[in-house]
């Protein structure tokens, strides 16, 4: 991480239902930073709050859910203090978003080059010609030089991998410092998945882009991200260096996640299962939220809420496993 201002700094973010009472927040006291040129992976199961956090950063929370506390700074600007108008100007310009399904995110009735031109001109203005040149350069940068040179194409004429590349070009149209990629490869075939992740890491390095990579695939996160943050039921449970994470996760939930992945080739052992299921927002749990499912639970886990601690010791567990050697 660079010294000084991080590309994205979130602190104490708490999201909850706007109505109702005495319920658990959906995301609670979440803090993390992403430096320039760095990729942080959010790993967690469905309902853990990964995508909700991304929506909060973009100021696009679904109706009925609101931010109850916390600060979100992108490139040094506090976003939560901005009025909607100012926030809208920053979406797309300071931060780009890539979704899981590009076909629903792209307009079906406009050529892909035209969509990039439109986005660029809305934020940066300038002549149509200049924007068109910019669109061609972007398409080339994401490996679609054939599309950049040839006639414009509609999204339905492209393959899934090409569409996701277009989506990335669109997200980068205005040179944002931050890119949020929400399950960008989940809908893609294995071979294409690798190409898209290679592209994202290349852009991250070449452009000094800060990337928030949201995934449920711990293996992908460990292979491509610089750091991993594991979320469970709306709380961060562990954050660490991606390289050592897979070898020695410290939180019992992280360990359980890793041990549930079938190894290749198979080693003949039975896959570890996590008993029970994650608590819903209605369930109130005293102490650690993972305690009811934890294999190493002790008495104090049901009373004391573990916190992540300062930078360096980033595991929210009262009795964590040994750190990586």
């Amino acid at each position: 991480m660079t010294a000084g201002e991080a590309a994205l700094a979130v602190s104490g973010l708490t999201l909850g239902l706007a109505s109702g009472h005495a319920r658990q927040p959906l995301v609670e006291d979440l803090s993390f930073r992403i430096g320039r040129g760095e990729m942080l992976a959010f790993v967690g199961e469905s309902g853990s709050g990964k995508s909700l956090t991304a929506a909060a950063i973009f100021g696009l929370l679904p109706p009925g859910i609101r931010r109850m506390a916390g600060a979100i700074r992108v490139g040094g600007t506090e976003l939560t203090a901005l009025p909607e108008r100012a926030l809208r100007a920053r979406r797309g310009r300071d931060m780009g978003l890539v979704f899981q399904n590009p076909l629903t995110a792209l307009s079906p009735s406009l050529g892909v080059q035209a969509q990039i031109v439109e986005t660029y001109r809305v934020h940066k203005g300038g002549t149509r010609e200049a924007a068109r040149g910019r669109a061609r350069a972007l398409l080339t940068e994401v490996g679609l030089s054939a599309l950049a040179a040839g006639p414009d194409r509609y999204p339905h004429q492209l393959s899934g991998g090409m569409r996701q590349r277009v989506m990335i070009a669109l997200a980068l149209a205005c040179d944002p410092g931050l890119l949020i990629a929400d399950e960008p490869t989940t809908a893609l075939d294995t071979l294409i998945q690798v190409q898209i992740m290679d592209l994202l890491t290349r852009l991250q390095r070449e452009r000094g882009l800060a990337v928030l990579f949201i995934t449920h695939d711990l293996r992908l996160a460990a292979r491509y991200a610089d750091r991993i943050l594991v979320l469970y039921a709306g709380r961060a449970v562990e954050e660490g260096d991606a390289a050592s994470f897979f070898i020695a996760p410290r939180h019992p939930y992280s360990r359980a996640l890793r041990d549930a992945i079938p190894p290749v080739p198979a080693d003949g052992r039975r896959l570890a299962e996590i008993p029970g299921q994650p608590p819903g927002p209605q369930t109130r749990i005293e102490g650690c939220r993972f305690a009811p499912r934890c294999p190493d639970v002790r008495d104090d886990c049901r009373r004391v809420v573990p916190t992540m601690g300062p930078l360096g010791v980033r595991v929210a567990c009262l009795h964590p496993g040994a750190p990586a050697p």
Partner: peptide
């Protein structure tokens, strides 16, 4: 072999060009 190479194996970090276009 290409399918296997594309399988994310955490130990091999960012093996460049694992599936060359």
């Amino acid at each position: 072999a290409a399918l296997l190479a594309a399988l994310p194996v955490p130990a091999e970090r960012k093996a460049a060009n694992s599936a060359a276009e």
